[in-house]
Amino acid sequence: MYEHILFPTDGSSGAEAALAHARTLAETHNATLHIMTVLDTSSPHIGMTAAGPEGATTGMTAEEHDESESGMVNEEHNIESSLRERSQAIVDAAADEVDGVDTVTAVEHGPPHSAILDYVDENDIDLIVMGTHGRTGVERYLLGSVAEKVVRTSDVPVLTVRLGEDDS
């Protein structure tokens, strides 16, 4: 039924909760599990907050920074290089968690929901399994929801896994 399952991750607890579901589905259907993160490049003032695979988040939940503050091209390049390394560490850590499952890792760039949907189209993905932070009210309105945008616009089924109180 499923040959290619996509697990987009930002390295957060919510994403980790969804990884178990993605792994089970990949094992059950003998599917390839595509693990990706997105470096949000939708604004020149957006970077990612990834601090590594120990529960940090990537560009899928971006944090503002002012590139003009550095005044040095090399420093900006070092920041971008560091962000790419952290993004790769996040997908590599997730891939290590699903040992025994055929995996593909990717770090994509752009607005997160668009990058996810582009990846789906380019890689014949049959199912998306992603975590959701379960934000509500003003926080959801101000921060938006990548999962919600993907659910509303995806042409393939999307399984969302909400971070439970026990998972935080």
Rank of each mutant, 00 (worst) to 15 (best):
E80V: 13
T37I: 06
R135A: 08
A94G: 07
E148T: 10
R140P: 11
E27P: 04
Q88V: 14
D167S: 10
L6N: 03
S114Q: 15
L143N: 15
V104F: 00
S70H: 15
G134W: 02
D126E: 09
E67M: 06
L33H: 03
G11F: 01
A94I: 06
V150E: 03
P111D: 07
V146W: 01
A106Q: 09
E139Y: 02
G134H: 03
R135I: 07
M60R: 00
D124V: 03
A115F: 09
K149D: 12
L33M: 10
L117R: 06
Y141K: 13
P44I: 15
A56M: 10
R152F: 00
H21G: 01
L163Y: 02
E76M: 10
L39W: 12
V120T: 09
V158G: 05
N74G: 00
V91H: 09
I46R: 15
A115R: 03
L25C: 05
S87T: 07
T105A: 05
E97S: 13
V156D: 08
M48K: 05
H4S: 01
V107M: 08
H45S: 09
N78V: 06
V91I: 08
S168A: 11
I35N: 00
V146G: 02
T132G: 03
T153G: 08
P53Q: 12
N30M: 01
I125F: 02
I35Q: 03
I46M: 15
H133T: 08
T132A: 04
F7M: 11
A31T: 06
A95P: 01
G100Q: 12
V146C: 11
Q88H: 04
V98A: 08
R23Q: 06
E148A: 09
T136Y: 02
E122N: 09
V91L: 10
A93Y: 13
T160Q: 11
H4M: 04
R84W: 14
H29F: 07
G137A: 08
I90Q: 00
P44T: 14
N74K: 13
P53W: 09
V161N: 01
P44R: 08
G11D: 05
T9L: 04
V120S: 01
A20W: 13
P111V: 06
G14R: 06
A22S: 07
L159H: 05
E3M: 11
V120A: 01
A31G: 05
Y141Q: 11
E108M: 08
M72I: 11
E67F: 11
T57Y: 13
L142H: 14
L142G: 10
S42G: 15
H109I: 04
G100I: 01
G52T: 07
G47T: 14
L127R: 06
T153S: 14
H77F: 07
A15K: 07
L127K: 04
A106H: 10
K149I: 02
I116M: 13
H45N: 15
T61L: 13
D96C: 02
N123M: 02
L142A: 14
A18T: 01
V104Q: 12
E54Q: 14
L19T: 12
G131P: 14
H133W: 08
N123Q: 09
S145Q: 09
I128P: 04
D167H: 14
R162G: 14
G47Y: 03
A94N: 03
G59C: 04
G71Q: 13
G11C: 01
A31Y: 01
S114K: 11
A15H: 03
D166W: 09
E64Y: 14
L6R: 10
D121F: 01
